[in-house]
Design a protein around this nucleic acid. Sequence first.
DNA 1: TTAGCTCCTCTAGTCACTGTAGGTTCAAGG
DNA 2: CCTTGAACCTACAGTGACTAGAGGAGCTAA
Lengths: 142, 142
Amino acid sequence: MLTIGYLAKKTGTKVQTIRYYEQIGLMPEPGRTDGGQRRYGNAELDRLSFIRHARQLGFSLDAIRELLDLSDHPARSCEEADAIARRQLKQVEQRMARLEVLRLELERMIEECSGGRAADCRVLEVLRDHSECLTDHEGIGT
Amino acid sequence: MLTIGYLAKKTGTKVQTIRYYEQIGLMPEPGRTDGGQRRYGNAELDRLSFIRHARQLGFSLDAIRELLDLSDHPARSCEEADAIARRQLKQVEQRMARLEVLRLELERMIEECSGGRAADCRVLEVLRDHSECLTDHEGIGT
DNA sequence: TTAGCTCCTCTAGTCACTGTAGGTTCAAGG
DNA sequence: CCTTGAACCTACAGTGACTAGAGGAGCTAA
């Protein structure tokens, strides 16, 4: 019989977060001691590991709910899980591409910083100057 | 005299978001028409562009507050702005490194998906199997 | 004048937690 | 058996950065 604190330590989760997962129905309501403290089994530890691992991979709690549902009904097709993972991969790639643009612009900003007064600071200038902006909102909604 | 909707369109911001920025003191309280509608000048448009650009670069509203403060007092050193930008760059690089790890794992998951029943699905298996987990919580807190 | 678009305030909701207050239970040592 | 103190409990509020909706008022052009 495992305590909530043990699960927390094993999975790198905060105790409150586990209770939160229970509250939103992602974790089952566990058994309790006479005093009312939660006691878990290994199945719950595995489930929490699954959730945390998926969270680290950037899956939303909703996506995780889907995945857990799939793994609770193993007769269903793998395609759904695959589709969820592919969606996730796409999102990760988009985020990375976006971050790369940001990284380059930040590097440029820092490189050009003259070290003088804020009035001449390239960092502020770049942020102020709309013409150097990578995105263009002029055409939106027209 | 510019309406809030015009600012919104020009900067790719939602109208509510501009009012939110005003509420938290990031945008100034603008003048109003007799009927109580907000009317802005070009200075406010510039300020909002600055905010949005910085947001796109991943700066937090707090960091932007600092940057705006710097640019409002141009006699102060550029070093502070530089430091903020450097902090930001570091964070972006960390996020990218993390995403790269996730991307590889997601690719592996998808590649190994057999297309069969969920019971045999590698996607679910990888998420379930703690031994393949990249992070290790065993040693935490000991 | 009237249509209809934009604007107003206020409140509540989103996501995924995190923190705090104030109290209770449990396990180990004496 | 008693005490200590860590770990547990509930309940609620707060975070960041918006976003959505209700219900109404203002503005502009035909």
